[in-house]
């Protein structure tokens, strides 16, 4: 795959990006409630002042044009909820935290997931299969909002060997990244096992085995590459999700990440933050999927991009 392909992908993204901006911009305005609705009814005159201040009194189309214009200049606008912050600043502060948490979790997920899945595929229908797969099922059934408090209870409260919240020391990274990574590890291990089993039955692997190659060599050299394809195509959205979708983990461990802004801004109707975070998420997905496609080509020479 050459430079032309890369450029093509990038250029192809522009209209899609534009479509996403438009779709989200109008979609979120259809939901009932506005950024200034609160338990205490804001008197109509004050509401008018507020709308004027944030240009919400202009026709929607005008607001859209203004937004596009600001966006073109890299300005995502002010937040309605966090009055002294711009969306750029919010993302600038929270994204590095989320990226770090996400990458550490991903390392956990891949380490645990591929090991467990590989082990299971190597000796299917034995204890090596059943035990890791059972744990992975637990990982799937027990969402982060169960795993997180559970880990906190065991390692934070009973054993008192890990911090229960915060984001300062290296220790603060352990429980949250494990919590977040565990769920993804569960999925990855299942996909790994499935993919490997699939490939192992293919002729070329059987040929290799017939030639008397040791099983470990077959696993690593022949099957792991192809067998990881389902994992890889899962990783694209998963990576984006792991970085942006860590709301629960972030709340449990009081981590100043981006995940909580996704839900919070939607619940607050903080339109600009919704836009900013959604666009960031879209970009993340694009980048991750792009990386996935590149990896795909490396892992599976049969896939060619024309």
């Amino acid at each position: 795959m050459g430079l032309r392909y890369l450029l093509g992908r990038l250029l192809g993204m522009i209209p899609v990006f534009f479509a996403v901006v438009t779709a989200i911009f109008f979609l979120i305005r259809f939901a009932p409630g506005g950024p200034f609705d609160s338990e205490r009814n804001v008197p109509p005159q004050i509401l008018e002042n507020l709308n004027k201040k944030y240009h919400l009194d202009e026709p929607l189309l005008m607001q859209y044009v203004h937004y596009l214009n600001d966006l073109a200049h890299g300005d995502l606008g002010p937040s309605f909820k966090h009055a002294n912050r711009t969306v750029n600043e919010i993302i600038g502060e929270a994204f590095p935290v989320s990226l770090e948490l996400g990458l550490i979790s991903l390392v956990w997920a891949l380490l645990i997931g591929i090991t467990a899945g590989g082990l299971a595929a190597l000796k299917p229908n034995t204890a090596f299969d059943y035990i890791p797969m059972s744990i992975s099922i637990l990982g799937i059934c027990l969402p982060t909002f169960v795993i997180g408090p559970f880990l906190v209870l065991v390692f934070g409260m009973w054993l008192e060997i890990a911090p229960v919240s915060g984001w300062d020391s290296i220790g603060d990274r352990i429980l949250p990244s494990l919590t977040l990574g565990f769920a993804f590890a569960a999925y990855i291990s299942r996909l790994t096992r499935g993919g490997l089993m699939e490939i192992r039955s293919l002729d070329f692997v059987r040929t290799a085995r017939a030639k008397g190659l040791p099983e470990s060599l077959i696993l690593v050299k022949h099957t792991l590459r192809g067998g990881l394809l389902p994992v890889v195509s899962y990783l694209g959205p998963a990576l984006a999700g792991i970085i942006a979708g860590a709301l629960v983990t972030e709340t449990i461990f009081s981590i100043p990440g981006l995940g909580r802004f996704f839900i919070e801004s939607a619940l607050n109707r903080d339109y600009t933050v919704v836009m900013g975070t959604s666009l960031l998420y879209f970009t993340l997905i694009f980048v991750c999927n792009f990386l996935v496609d590149v990896t795909y080509t490396i892992l599976d020479p049969r896939v060619r991009h024309e």
Partner: peptide, 14 residues
């Protein structure tokens, strides 16, 4: 890709 990017909460609410 576009559908992935749409905020799910709003879809449900709407």
């Amino acid at each position: 890709d576009i559908l992935y990017a749409l905020p799910f909460i709003f879809l449900v609410i709407i």
